[in-house]
Design a protein around this nucleic acid. Structure first.
Length: 489
RNA sequence: GGCGGCAUAGCCAAGUGGCUAAGGCAGCGGUCUGCAAAACCGUUAUUCAUCGGUUCGAAUCCGAUUGCCGCCUCCA
């Protein structure tokens, strides 16, 4: 089945036709390194991570470039406030970004270039534009003349005339047209600067992506992505710069992920509802955050709330429970025991069918929500085999469960979840909950021991009393095979 | 003012012309269990904001209405 992609440029789903058969170049706008990553960054990272993983799983040779903006007004502000250099600020937040991404199990892109390491590329690009008469220098600043690029507005569906009518256009009398944007900024006294044909200065925001995508992917590449807020002006300006310089299309497919809202409100500094990734993963297992995001289509807005994360956690536990039951069942097989054909071979074909449907869902514009539906179907099927099929002999279950293990491995590797051993997952999840609620583990375990004793003496009322007491702290006990385990609701 | 998006069960959320409208959470009944938990089985939208239209046939296409939201300024 061909890969379909919703192209922002045409507002339609299109069939992906790579420039070079079997090879994909993908550029995604990364972070500006002046603060820690929040849920919104996490969503963009997870969305494009799954896209990267699925394309690779489908056999494409993908070069994924995600940049770091390490020179910018916000970084300069921060550096001034702290009295240190911009490089130190950028380095710190790139480091923290990398930690967050690792925690979220986001694969490091193929190339992660930094703006400051591509000054020569940017200056060359600006010079080309100047020589073509599309850029003009004024007192050490260089501007891009939007009137020189007739296709301006093509990505975001805007017309220059309409934008001119808008009241929010910055009036800068230096510019020939208020919509012209800066390619190179003259630096003020004491600001970081680089030598250029226009004097000491620094690059404008948009030019770095044009320069770096060209450096690593060429004049035209396959996929360009980012958050939907980048459509205008950032991506529009990138297109203008690159295409005016090269005369070729910048990217064939433009993909934009939807926003994360917080309790139905827009996330913003003024509302004080910025949720850093590192705070969230103290409250919930990172895979719960990932699952939460993947349960909606990447283009829809998602609403982050404690309730939604809780539900994602419960759903994640459902999958890990199935995986754990499967692991236990398989380990119950005697060494060297012969495999017998399953008494119900339809389980195997159903599993293979679910894998095909899962892949097909991702082929259709990366529909992770639909794909997850098949993951849960597979989990139910596993539970049927491990738990409900009481009459099926163990050796006959082996073929089915080994098929299921392989399929879950595939699901997990594409979605970037189910990466832990179930026991390790449950342990980690419980630690998070214990920490969040400030529970006393030794006290809980002492109570469980006391209850076990009561149960041995068949003192059911005492046993139930302890169960009740622990239930008040949302602790659920599970009695099985002579031992009691506990978990937190 | 310009451009765009969304509205599906108690909640979250797929589905964009045609089999019984996925899946998750929550609820209810049952099996299992000393009691539970987990798991399994059954059940919870004759209906997809409203009103018209196109069609043999629409949640899905078109138009209108209502409500919500995003972008147009730094932003994933």
């Amino acid at each position: 089945m061909p890969q379909k992609i919703f192209n922002t440029k045409t507002r339609k789903k299109e069939i992906l036709q790579p420039i070079k058969e079997g090879v994909i170049g993908m550029y995604v706008c990364g972070i500006t390194a002046y603060d820690v990553c929040h849920v919104g960054h996490a969503r963009a990272a997870v969305v494009f991570d799954v896209i990267f993983r699925h394309l690779k799983a489908r056999g494409y040779d993908v070069t994924y470039v995600k940049n770091f903006t390490d020179i910018d007004d916000k970084i300069i502000d921060r550096a001034n406030k702290e009295g240190i250099g911009i490089a130190q600020i950028a380095e710190r937040y790139i480091q923290l970004h990398d930690e967050d991404m690792a925690a979220l199990n986001v694969i490091t892109p193929t190339v992660t270039p930094k703006a400051t390491e591509h000054m020569a590329d940017m200056i060359a690009l600006i010079s080309t534009l100047e020589n073509k008469g599309i850029a003009y220098a004024l007192d050490g600043d260089v501007f891009f003349a939007v009137n020189g690029f007739p296709a301006y507005g093509g990505l975001s569906g805007r017309h220059l005339d309409d934008m001119m009518a808008g009241a929010r256009v910055d009036i800068n009398d230096k510019k020939r047209n208020p919509l012209d944007f800066v390619l190179w900024k003259k630096s003020k006294e004491g600001e970081p600067s680089w030598e250029s044909p226009w004097g000491k200065g620094r690059p404008g925001w948009h030019i770095e992506c044009s320069a770096m995508s060209r450096r690593y992917l060429g004049d035209t590449f396959d996929i360009h992505g980012g958050g939907e807020d980048l459509v205008f002006p950032h991506h529009e300006n990138e297109i203008a710069q690159s295409q005016a310089a090269t005369g070729k299309p910048l990217a064939n497919y433009w993909m934009h992920n939807g926003f994360v809202k917080i309790n139905a409100e827009k996330m913003s500094k003024s509302l004080g509802n910025i949720f850093p990734v590192r705070d969230i993963i103290k409250q919930y297992h990172p895979e719960a955050l990932r699952l939460f995001m993947l349960q909606s289509h990447y283009r829809s807005p998602v609403d982050y709330s404690d309730t939604s994360l809780k539900e994602a956690r419960t759903a994640l536990i459902r999958c890990y429970t199935a995986l754990q039951l499967m692991k236990e069942t398989l380990s119950g097989l005697a060494q060297g025991e012969e495999t017998v054909l399953p008494t119900k071979p339809e389980y195997v074909s159903k599993l293979n069918d679910l894998k095909d449907k899962f892949d097909a869902a991702l082929d259709d514009d990366f529909n992770t929500a639909q794909a997850l539906g098949y993951v849960f179907d597979a989990a139910r099927l596993i539970n049927n085999v491990t738990t409900a099929e009481k009459k099926m002999p163990l050796p006959a279950k082996r073929v089915i469960l080994e098929t299921a293990t392989g399929i879950f491995k595939h699901f997990g590797s594409v979605l970037g979840v189910f990466q832990s051993d179930p026991d390790i997952f449950f342990h980690a999840d419980r630690n998070i909950e214990v920490g969040k609620r400030g529970l006393d583990v030794s006290r809980i375990e002492a109570l469980i021991l006391a209850r076990q004793k009561a149960r041995e003496e068949k003192d059911w009322s005492r046993a139930d009393e302890i169960r009740q007491e622990l239930a008040l702290q949302n602790i659920t006990l599970k009695d099985s095979a002579g031992q009691t385990t506990w978990s937190i609701e």
